[in-house]
């Protein structure tokens, strides 16, 4: 051993193009901000006044509930439909196919309105012998209030989309996994639930995150059913005070805030399901900031010259 050679202290390559680009973008952003913030018609004071308005917050809650429940319905329904489509039972596979065909083939807005009109189509719903006497029956509109109609509309539509996502995930899992599980004496259900689906998750999660974000925004469509979610709450207010633009901004800010939170959540969930797939997991944003800070704390020259060893790749296990 002759000792470690001296660390390289080289002058890094300069990138004048990047600098020029950055300046252009910064100017454009500044102009845009100026256009937004100093245009009196945006009425930022009104925005501030309504941002935490009670009816906006109530609408927000409805939007969140609707998003969460529709996605639960979508995921559960999607897994069921996907398993049905891959089933050896032809009738089940065909039924799933038909469901997906109808619900993916028509606009969700149209479906929502349909669910809203369900009471007009079948005024009474009943449970009893098929085509025979009913044991129990109830007024459709009492049984399916607006929220439920909205939920059915969004959830069933989502299930059709999720079915395709889940199916792609299931078929992405190596057949050897199923064989190994069967060879151990595991049942078909156990094999699906314990072995195949957890591995399919890696393929299923990213598009599901996108679906959730998309669902959050799609819930605004249920305003056609006069359900007071976030967008409808905003609309109701500006139909009274004519402050359309500020209220649309209020609503948009909330959507933006929620989708941002979902994006961060998605990152962590994806990371969780990468378990075992990669030898090391990528660092979380928090870890990334921490390594950045700790390398900045060292003398700047050393931090620049010394390659930071495998920055923060957290070991599994």
């Amino acid at each position: 051993m002759t000792g470690r050679p001296e660390a390289i202290k080289a002058v890094p390559v300069r990138h004048p193009g990047r600098w020029a680009g950055a300046v252009v973008v910064a100017v454009l952003v500044a102009m845009l901000l100026h256009a937004f913030l100093y245009n009196p018609r945006f009425k930022w004071d009104v925005v501030g006044q309504y941002l935490f308005d009670d009816s906006i917050l109530r609408g927000l809650l409805v939007t969140l509930e609707l998003t969460a429940l529709s996605m639960v319905m979508g995921v559960v329904g999607g897994v069921l439909l996907a398993v049905m489509r891959l089933s050896r039972n032809r009738l089940l596979a065909a039924a799933a196919w038909l469901f997906i065909w109808v619900f993916r083939g028509t606009p969700v807005l149209v479906q929502l309105v349909f669910w809203g009109f369900l009471g007009a189509l079948w005024p009474k719903l009943s449970i009893g012998v098929p085509f025979g006497p009913a044991f129990w029956s109830e007024n459709t509109n009492t049984l399916i209030p607006t929220f439920t109609a909205a939920l059915l509309g969004l959830g069933l539509n989502e299930a059709a989309y999720m079915a395709e996502i889940v199916r792609a995930g299931i078929t992405s899992v190596d057949e050897g996994q199923t064989e190994a599980a069967h060879a151990l004496g595991m049942s078909r259900f156990q094999t699906m639930w314990r072995i195949v689906l957890p591995q399919a998750m890696r393929v299923i999660i990213p598009p599901t995150g996108n679906e959730t974000i998309s669902m959050l925004k799609t819930t605004s469509l249920v305003s056609v059913l006069a359900l007071e979610e976030l967008f409808q709450a905003g609309q109701l207010i500006y139909s009274r005070n004519y402050q359309n633009i500020p209220l649309l901004i209020v609503v948009s800010l909330w959507y933006l805030f929620l989708t941002s939170i979902l994006t961060v959540g998605q990152y962590y969930i994806e990371r969780h399901y990468a378990r075992g797939a990669n030898r090391t997991l990528p660092p979380t944003p928090v870890q990334r900031i921490r390594t950045l800070l700790s390398s900045a704390r060292r003398s700047p020259a050393a931090a620049g010259a010394e390659p930071v060893p495998a920055s923060g790749g957290e070991e599994l296990s």
């Binding site: 190596d174 190994a180 072995i195 591995q199 075992g276």
Partner: peptide
Amino acid sequence: GMVFQRFNLFPH
């Protein structure tokens, strides 16, 4: 018991 050429351990 069965042992496969490509191991088929459960990666997760």
